[in-house]
């Protein structure tokens, strides 16, 4: 464990909690893509199946359980508890356009052709693009609430910090995982445009809105 990885995990946790609290306290999931949240629930479920087979550390297990739990709680709030506030008209991204090609890719490009390993690979690939329905929704409505912007920033920052962690681990331990690195790069690149808007607008106290 190095500082980049810890900071990445904390940033990831913060993102998930910001989103949960935003929905819970405003009793509304307006502006949030339920589809991205379903994809994240799928990401955590397929990645953390090793909870049942391998024990890595108390930290590792605890974080995995929290991520999965929060992720399902978010999906439940969007599709059940606060369903009336869910903006489904603007959440029109087709999930199958991501899930099906990624399932195929994870069968073709993986470290080992074993069920758990393929599911792990699927989750890594899927995570890299799971935010697309949310970004699509923001671009469609042309704006995002400030709290939603904080959520997106923390979520994007997490993988960027993991990139630093992988550079660190490569030099410190000779460890590298090409699948995670390439997917992590793609994931971080997808957020770059948003990072720019966040820094130039939200941090200066303005609401995130896109030019018409």
């Amino acid at each position: 464990m190095n500082l980049f990885r810890l900071a990445g995990d904390v940033s990831h946790l913060l993102a998930i909690i910001i989103l949960l609290l935003k929905i819970w306290r405003t009793r509304s999931c307006a502006g949030i893509s339920g589809k991205s949240q379903i994809l994240f629930a799928l990401v955590f479920t397929t990645r953390y199946l090793d909870l049942l087979t391998t024990f890595i550390s108390f930290y590792n297990t605890t974080m995995k359980v929290i991520y999965i739990g929060c992720s399902y709680a978010t999906v439940w709030m969007i599709y059940a508890k606060f369903k009336a506030t869910y903006d489904s008209n603007h959440d029109t991204f087709r999930m199958e356009f991501l899930v099906i090609p990624i399932a195929a890719l994870s069968l073709l490009v993986n470290h080992d052709f074993a069920p758990l390993e393929i599911l792990w690979t699927f989750s890594i690939y899927l995570e890299s693009v799971a935010i697309l329905p949310q970004l699509f929704m923001v671009s469609k409505t042309g704006e995002a609430e400030t709290i939603t912007s904080h959520y997106l920033f923390a979520l994007g920052l997490y993988r960027a910090l993991y990139l630093m962690n992988w550079i660190w681990r490569f030099f410190a331990e000779g460890f590298f995982d090409l699948i995670a690195i390439v997917a992590g790069l793609v994931q971080t690149i997808l957020y770059c445009d948003f990072f720019y808007l966040y820094i130039t607008k939200v941090l200066k106290g303005k609401k995130l809105s896109l030019p018409a």
Binding site: R5, M63, D112, L116
Partner: peptide, 10 residues
């Protein structure tokens, strides 16, 4: 390699 791969990251 026979051993199951371990992914120690989250």
């Amino acid at each position: 390699e026979d051993e199951e791969r371990q992914h120690d990251e989250l």
